[in-house]
């Protein structure tokens, strides 16, 4: 069920401003790929092109191709809503729906897409919460508000909500940057388990995190303010952190830059 992502010559724009330039990379299925780089280098922007969330921002558009197992996400006639059902996303700040209970949050993706069967929903909610390592903590209070959970629990709730619709790919935009170290560890453990089922792309500012959770790492940087972000290199994480092939990567991961 996990799919691979290929981009070729991808440019990403906000109106006339080119935010990311000429990215060609491959994200392997059933693995974790980390995007690292200084702030403003376009890694989150690039991530959001993988489920066409980039277009939600007024003026957001792309040029080039993003292939999901050889299907072009930006081909004529492709429904962005259908893309987002296939490619799920977890955001920087935990964002459970405040009007909904824990159960309703996890079931929301299915319900809002028209699934009604009670047993199916029950099963999906339990399975998703188990896969998100949250079931044991919330099984007795499924009808309570999701906002009553701790930050780390809320983020796992959001992951459960994202995987309940059975996506092929899971995008994570700095999922731990608002969490404490213990919650971060719980999410990282979870990412390690989830990669058996999903293709995962994670944007992170934390290089230790990239080194811990990812199989492959892509390093992006930006030449200066107002210039577009570029992919410098992508490779096996172990390789990248021990023997980066580019000087810029080495400077960044050793803390001499950025």
């Amino acid at each position: 069920m996990a799919k691979r992502i290929d981009t070729s010559g991808l440019d990403v724009f906000y109106g006339d401003f080119k935010a990311v330039e000429d990215v060609s990379l491959t994200v392997e299925p059933r693995s974790v790929t980390a995007f690292i780089g200084p702030s403003g280098c376009g890694k989150s922007t690039l991530l959001r092109t993988f489920n066409r969330m980039h277009e939600v921002v007024p003026g957001g558009r792309v040029a080039g191709k993003v292939l999901l197992d050889d299907e072009d996400l930006y081909a004529e006639g492709v429904d962005p809503v259908a893309v987002r059902r296939t490619v799920g996303m977890v955001f920087q700040r935990p964002n459970p729906f405040p009007t909904m209970s824990i159960y309703d949050n996890v079931a929301s993706g299915l319900r809002l897409n028209g699934v009604k069967g009670r047993t199916l929903l029950d099963e999906t909610v339990e399975q998703s919460l188990r896969r998100a390592n949250l079931w044991e903590e919330v099984k007795d209070r499924l009808n309570k508000a999701g906002s009553g959970l701790s930050g780390g629990q809320q983020q796992r709730l959001c992951i459960a909500r994202a995987i309940a619709v059975e996506p092929q790919v899971l995008l994570m935009d700095e999922p731990c940057s608002a969490l404490d170290p213990i919650s971060t560890l719980a999410i990282e453990d979870l990412i390690f388990e989830l990669k058996n089922r999903y293709t995962i792309v994670i944007v992170t500012h934390n290089m230790q995190q990239a080194a811990r959770v990812s199989d492959r790492t892509a390093f992006f940087t930006i030449a200066g303010a107002g210039k577009p972000g570029r992919l410098i290199e992508i490779g096996d994480t172990a390789e990248m952190f021990s023997r980066p092939s580019e000087r810029a990567t080495e400077d960044y991961i050793t803390g001499r830059f950025g």
Binding site: M53, V56, V81, M89, N95, S108, L112, N113, R161, V165
Partner: peptide, 21 residues
């Protein structure tokens, strides 16, 4: 905006996001 984006990311159409979220 996070909430709207969370719904969009689940593959929920815009009008339904507005009505339900």
């Amino acid at each position: 905006r996070d909430l709207r984006e969370a719904a969009f990311a689940l593959g929920v159409p815009r009008w339904k996001t507005i009505m339900s979220i």
